[in-house]
């Protein structure tokens, strides 16, 4: 990482741990619950957020000195919405199959609090390169949580990973199922995603005592 100064590198690594957008900043929860029943969807969503947040942070940062303070929320929202719609339209025209996978997420990306949150907290006050790095860092932090939750939900809920049966065949009763193991269908329901994230927070704060909340 020769081209990244230590401070810059921190912009990427901080959100992966101590300043994680989901578990510390409490942003981006809705999508973390809604689409993590399947590992593949978690990955697609993470990549989309990476793209929109990275690019969006740069655009807002470039515009930061000309946005009128009274309407800055609206402007931020319009920038995100426009970016997402452009991506959606271009995909629909040139990569139709991919766009079908993504159109489910379009709404979720626009309202993802992480994007707005980072615009407000960082891009509005920093230069484009730093904002880009911040965008990348936060998207990666988001991706880590999404992938962990997606991994457990899909594995324990359907016995598959990325669509491939890894524990055996539940209908033919091979593999683990031959011993009487049954898929925990409950894991596929969103409330379980909340509980898994709660457990992740537990692990994270046990490892880093500084994050524990005072009573």
């Amino acid at each position: 990482m020769g081209l990244l100064s230590k401070k810059d590198a921190k912009l990427i690594t901080d959100p992966l741990t101590d300043n994680n957008p989901i578990t510390i900043q409490v942003l981006g929860i809705c999508s973390a619950l809604a689409i993590t029943a399947e590992l593949k969807a978690s990955i697609v969503m993470s990549v989309s957020v990476l793209f929109v947040l990275g690019l969006g942070n740069v655009v807002i940062s470039l515009m930061r000195n000309i946005i009128p303070s009274k309407i800055r929320i609206i402007v931020q929202l319009i920038v995100v919405a426009t970016l997402v719609i452009i991506v959606d339209l271009v995909l629909k025209a040139f990569a139709y199959e991919l766009s079908k996978t993504l159109s489910v997420f379009v709404g979720l990306i626009i309202t993802n609090c992480i994007i707005m949150g980072r615009f407000e907290a960082f891009a509005l006050g920093n230069g484009p390169w730093k904002s880009f790095l911040d965008g990348v860092g936060n998207s990666l932090g988001y991706a880590v949580i999404l992938i962990i939750v997606g991994f457990f939900r899909e594995l324990l809920g359907s016995g598959t990973l990325l669509g491939i049966q890894v524990l055996g065949d539940p209908i033919e009763k091979t593999g683990l199922y031959a011993f009487g193991y049954e898929n925990n269908g409950f894991m596929l329901l969103s409330p379980m995603a909340l509980i898994v994230v709660g457990l992740i927070i537990w692990v994270q704060r046990s490892r880093n005592q500084a994050l524990i909340e005072e009573n």
Partner: peptide, 17 residues
């Protein structure tokens, strides 16, 4: 301690859901 605040809230919300 590590569950205090946010962690336990997530779990309670899950149970309420």
């Amino acid at each position: 301690p590590a569950l205090r605040g946010l962690g336990i809230t997530f779990i309670i919300t899950g149970l309420m859901a």
